[in-house]
Computed example of a mutant assay.
Amino acid sequence: MKIIHTADWHIGKLVHGIHMTEDQAYILEEFIKLIEIEKPQVVIIGGDLYDRSIPPVEAVELLDYVFTRIIDMGVKIVAIGGNHDSADRVSFGNKILKNKGLYIEGKIKDTIEPIKIEDEYGPVNFYLLPYADPVIVREVYKNEEVKSHDMAMKVIIDKIKENMNKDERNILVCHSFLRGDSDPETSESELPLSIGGSEYVSVDHFLDFDYVALGHLHRPQRVKEEKIRYSGSLLKYSFSETTQNKSVTLIDMKEDGQVEIKFEKLKTIRDMRKIKGEINKLLDPSVYEGTNCEDYIMAILTDEGEIIDPIGKLRQVYPNILRIERESRDESENTRTSASREYTKKSLIDLFDEFYASMTKNEFDEEKTNTLISVIETLKGEGREV
């Protein structure tokens, strides 16, 4: 069986105030072209179809258009809701949609029956496991021991295994944060599933499946074994993802359940990347010629001293610049250590003088010193600790 695994479309997403719908529509057209070429029997989407629980109208229309195009090609869709999706909205009409070849699940159930899709070798069982908070799992499974994502997953998988036919091929579609032999690579654009380490789930719960199609993490990566994979997001959604190679995962499942895996990169309108240097150099045609100036840009400026309207100047060349940072100066470990040693030896005025100079590269002159002294004296007069 030929399968395409993708996830984390986040349709309707805003990045630094920019609507990504145009970029998403473009890359989803490229995705449809890939389906036309590869002719898979099934497309798996591992959650986070939308970026928020109440998506904008254009996001709903885009997803409807893409699903219709895929189903019209005779390709079945197996999809789940993620932590960004609304379980009720994703699940709406799912019983009717099954007749069209769209199997979509947004709510966790106490009994997860597999979706059976057959190829020339027989049935492949797809178990759809949408994201669910441990509180929900505890209520649905009536198990008071469920207090973490890991325990919730163990309870669900143990229940699936009670009736799972291991003589047939079994695929799990899941939206979760798995940890294997090492910590997975995360991105700033991923919404945490919980606070602290309780969001982690052990990969060992999943080893009995022939393939595990994961969603949630935006970097394509495997977890412990090749058959347990995050497909990653289609697009870059934060500047922490600039070095990631986005792709979709192509799976060829054999008669015995073994999988051959390859990756396909899709064309985008714009990349998301960082540039670094003095502002005049970044505006030099010899620097930006041959690059796509329409890309989403984060500029790290290395200039010393004040810069007048840097965003305006850079936008003349890079119209989609989203973020500017100044490179920090004098932040080496030795400098910080030395400063900490001298901290108690310096007055508040001296410390503020050094801080002001390091941040602005300007002198903390007598007028500013007198103003600061006046503020300190006023605070002391009010009985405040300074």
Rank of each mutant, 00 (worst) to 15 (best):
A7D: 11
A7N: 01
A7K: 04
I11Q: 08
H19P: 04
T21Q: 10
Q24N: 07
A25W: 02
L28Y: 09
F31S: 11
K33E: 11
L34N: 07
I35A: 10
E36S: 13
K39Y: 12
I45M: 12
R52C: 13
P56S: 09
P56Q: 05
E58A: 04
A59I: 03
L62W: 10
D64K: 12
V66Y: 06
T68I: 03
M73I: 01
V75T: 15
V78I: 15
V90F: 00
F92L: 14
K95T: 06
I96S: 12
K100G: 10
K100L: 12
K100V: 06
Y103A: 03
Y103N: 07
I104H: 08
K109N: 07
T111P: 01
E118A: 10
E120W: 00
G122Q: 02
F126L: 04
Y131L: 07
D133F: 03
P134I: 09
V137F: 02
V137K: 09
K142M: 07
D150T: 09
A152L: 09
I156G: 10
D158H: 01
K159C: 04
M164L: 13
D167H: 03
N170M: 01
L172D: 02
L172S: 05
C174A: 14
F177T: 08
T186D: 11
P192S: 00
S194T: 05
G196I: 05
G197S: 14
Y200A: 14
V201N: 02
V203G: 07
L207A: 14
Y211D: 01
Y211C: 02
V212G: 06
V212T: 09
L214G: 07
L217C: 07
P220K: 05
P220G: 12
Q221L: 09
L234T: 00
L235G: 00
Y237K: 10
K246A: 02
V248E: 06
Q258M: 05
Q258E: 15
I261K: 10
I261Y: 08
T268C: 11
R273C: 13
K274N: 14
K274L: 14
L282H: 04
P285E: 12
I297A: 07
T302W: 14
I308T: 13
P310R: 12
P310F: 11
K313C: 04
L314Q: 08
E325C: 11
S338I: 12
S340N: 08
K345D: 15
S347H: 04
Y356E: 05
A357P: 02
A357C: 11
K361S: 15
F364L: 07
F364M: 09
T371S: 09
I373A: 13
I373H: 06
I376Y: 02
L379A: 14
E385R: 14
